[in-house]
Write a protein that binds this DNA or RNA. Sequence first.
DNA 1: CTGAAAGCGCTTACAG
DNA 2: CTGAAAGCGCTTACAG
Lengths: 328, 328
Amino acid sequence: MSQATVSRVLSGSPKVHPGTRARVLAALDSTGYVPNQAARAMRTSRTGAIGVVVGRITNPFYPELLTALSRELHAAKQRMVLWDSEGPGAQAALDAIRQRVVDGLVFTTATRDLPPLRQALAANAPVVLVNRSVPTLACDQVGSDNVAGGQLVARYFAASGHRRCAMICGPRGISTTDERERGYRAELRATGQGLRSELVARGDYSHPEGHKGMRRLLDRDDPPTAVFCANDLLAFGAIDAARSLGVRVPGDVWVCGYDDIPMASWEAYELTTIRQPIDETAEDAVRRLLARIADPTLPTVTHRFPPRLIVRSSTAGAPLAPELISPA
Amino acid sequence: MSQATVSRVLSGSPKVHPGTRARVLAALDSTGYVPNQAARAMRTSRTGAIGVVVGRITNPFYPELLTALSRELHAAKQRMVLWDSEGPGAQAALDAIRQRVVDGLVFTTATRDLPPLRQALAANAPVVLVNRSVPTLACDQVGSDNVAGGQLVARYFAASGHRRCAMICGPRGISTTDERERGYRAELRATGQGLRSELVARGDYSHPEGHKGMRRLLDRDDPPTAVFCANDLLAFGAIDAARSLGVRVPGDVWVCGYDDIPMASWEAYELTTIRQPIDETAEDAVRRLLARIADPTLPTVTHRFPPRLIVRSSTAGAPLAPELISPA
DNA sequence: CTGAAAGCGCTTACAG
DNA sequence: CTGAAAGCGCTTACAG
């Protein structure tokens, strides 16, 4: 049997005699032969691997997203090469696409000015942005409709009678927090109250920063009665801060997060939050990326999943009536 | 300039004329040439990639470990290919080593009977076990000294006057929980009390199972006064359960975890726990694996890092005096 | 349906 | 110090 025939059997080519196929399979089985992937990659110029850049793994949202991406990639028979966006990860991902060790790239923590991302796009590499978005970039982008999410929270607070609403934001320049703030602010304005700048705290997406932000807000003579935190991690910090000051949640102040990470439903927090459909997001991102690898001329698409309000006991209001949830 | 010369410049060979080198570098720069990694891998039979199998990403310990492994691998100029041990991840990792897409494998969730792990070892693949251990396996193993950790907790409880000590274990057959239990049990026996089987709860390494275990223990007529949880996640569940029943921590019952994940220091928990040196663990694991790839004849080593008790306010005792901490 | 041959893009003896 | 050539292990026209 020739090399060529074995290769045809392996690739499932129809032009192999069934008898030959059986003999090849038997030989393969007895020798334990496994094709060398590097040789195959060189010949076909397809690596079967996708690079993924994730960040701030201290935020449990990323591990969740990573797990979902891993599942989708492996379902599509792709390997996953991982980099941490802290440090030189994004640059390493760019090198990998240039060296042809991955066929495409998933960025989960893109910001406007991530040079390796720009360079990857300039080199025509297949790229998809997940979670974060950068409006000016010509690539597929998939994530939660953060503006609509912020609006939803504002509408929920306002409809429940809150007139002093605050927000604890993440770092400026990061699309998720900026968009959530924009929606929240616009909708508070629409309900006639607006978002006063003294009632906006800002810090890293972390528990300690949520803690600090809430302390500052509660320290005021007119503390807010409802606080929207740009993600769940900030919300946990905010709740812990309120408790440490003897302020009851939701009795004295309501707290709402964003992401619905697993911890949000733990008894310690019971956090009202906006859920992102992580599995659908990962599925959509992988599907689009593989489609683009197969056909680089595809038009780029930005896909935003509608937010969903999950009410738990860090707020005391019933969930919004459907007519309040649908876009105004 | 020939292909060979370019290759020599790229590999930093000393036998290139400085002038030639400069011209090559200039040409490289102006063309933006990047060598194809698949071709290089085929020629050198080194991929520059390491496979990592992680699991239960719902436990924040794994993301921490993953981040540390990522940092160490990239510092060593290795790419990281990732699989989730839930599902067919371990099998995919085995395939990858056979197909020569990775040079070695890191397993973080090995159990005694993980066939792909056995097969990888049978195929003489470079493998290191991190976190979990399997005594009968001939491969490098790196992790916390869990037996000593369990002993340390028992000594701390006993020295603080507790006579009704309980444990919430993880799933049987997983080395971490089994070893921690063994140490805890042995030391409780040594202090004259032992670990009564009614005071042992067992379940998945998860918040809900810790919750359930604690409820069961507190439901007794003689509830325990101190509970050792096999990991932090179980401990958080246990603390939440105690609170929901109006049982004060540490006033009525002490709780101690294992791992010292970031959440352990959050205000909501302030969990006393055993710290694992994650960075050193990852560094040691990567170093050993790369050494084995370079020289497969190296003897296998099991390295255990000493545990360290971190006292926070889920227990009320001062940390142990040094003479109590050192091995009995 | 099958096999001989070319060629993917490197690295590394080997000869000069 | 430099280049021509072989060869790593595949896949795929091409010829039969």
